[in-house]
Design a protein around this nucleic acid. Structure first.
Lengths: 218, 218
DNA sequence: TTGACAATTCAACAGTTGTTGAATTTTACT
DNA sequence: AGTAAAATTCAACAACTGTTGAATTGTCAA
């Protein structure tokens, strides 16, 4: 029962609560999950969630925050590397790759928890109740850096258009993260929601072409 | 208290329940809304929802179904018209327009209920629990016709790619319908979630360019 | 007016919810 | 070994949930 140096408040059961909450919140949303369901899945007493995290709302936020910083870090690193390679102004597709590839990498990583977390982010981003506040506080600071890079890569473009294009990108990504299984049904098994490789390989050029059309670059 | 000829089971309070359910379900999701909240907003007794619709789940489905047929109808008409103008094989952008413009038109219509309904569809489409089954049953039959038209407009393209491109289109549309207000914040007021005109004017060429890039047409 | 039937409300149920304070166990340090 | 603190469980609460059957009101044709 040794805590990792990084987190002094580490506890196995505490972590299991977060894992269970991640999975359940991602699938059923905030109101679709009870603390007892979470406790049962984590094989823990109900009261323990309150002891560690306080109110249900705080547990939800803690679940969201646990991996948010990691995601922001790998994304920032990808953006910085793209800017280094591009001498300060990387080409459009490199910026979009730096935005999407880190997510793909995390989903393909050994930790299966990232799949649930991605679905959780999709839920939050689609929700008018949670999305506006939480995404803004914890993701928009970095997203603003991507927007700035896009403005540099697409000069002479009204900022308004760049924001709308990012909005479409965000939508395509969000539905991909949600993994609702609808594309599987609609394509009659031809495509799979879980096929991250194809999903991101095609999303990047798709979105890049959209940006170029709207923002009038070659 | 005269029922419109079209619906023999019409009742003002019944309709008010649907209106209230539409607004609340769209914003807070299925589990985030109680029957008492709906009844209160509709200024009606709780038991009346059960009398008219049965279980809560049935009320949810009835709310979804009320406008689904209308949406499918106007969309089908738009697709047929595009096919007529294009001599059976309308160009790519005409198909995408036939898919998106009807929604824009409904949102700009006099009935403000369509705004709530669009957010409800966004919620359902983003949900792994509801999306797979309900969207498949009630929307995919028509969507398959759009897919077929896309295949005709983009011959020599692997169907897999067309399905993924439609998936990105669906994602961009879904986030637009959700109207979470995030683009307002991120753009610092430069763009508004409620600005359907710009949202769809830009979405159509954005998506068309994406299709062309992936499916290799001029 | 009466009588039927639909629409609506009233009252109440059994089960579940988030949350809390006290009791118990485990951990870590001397 | 002993002890204080942290971690965990136990037991219970008041409030709220969806749902139902009986009672009341409204509607409209005979």
């Amino acid at each position: 029962m040794k805590p990792p140096v990084s987190d002094p408040s580490f506890t196995p059961k505490r972590e299991r609560i977060l894992d269970a909450a991640e999975e359940l919140f991602a699938r059923h949303g905030y109101d679709g999950v009870t603390l007892r369901q979470i406790a049962k899945k984590a094989d823990v007493d109900v009261a323990l969630a309150n002891y560690h995290f306080g109110k249900k709302r705080d547990l939800f936020e803690a679940t969201f925050l646990r991996r948010a910083q990691i995601l922001n870090d790998v994304r920032l690193q990808a953006l910085l590397e793209a800017e280094k390679e591009g001498d300060g102004t990387p080409p459009l597709e490199a910026i979009i790759s730096a935005f999407l590839r880190p997510i793909q990498a995390l989903k393909l990583s050994s930790d299966p928890g990232w799949r649930n977390y991605c679905a959780l982010v999709a839920y939050i981003n689609s929700s008018a109740v949670w999305g506006e506040e939480m995404m803004h506080r914890h993701f928009d600071p970095l997203v603003s850096r991507y927007i700035a890079a896009l403005k540099k890569a697409l000069p002479n473009t009204e900022p308004e258009k760049i924001h709308w294009c990012y909005h479409y990108l965000s939508g395509a990504l969000t539905l991909t993260l949600a993994q609702t299984g609808r594309i599987d049904r609609l394509s009659e098994g031809l495509c799979q929601s879980t096929d991250s490789q194809t999903a991101y390989d095609l999303m990047i050029p798709f979105v890049a072409a959209g940006f170029e059309r709207i923002c009038g670059e070659p």
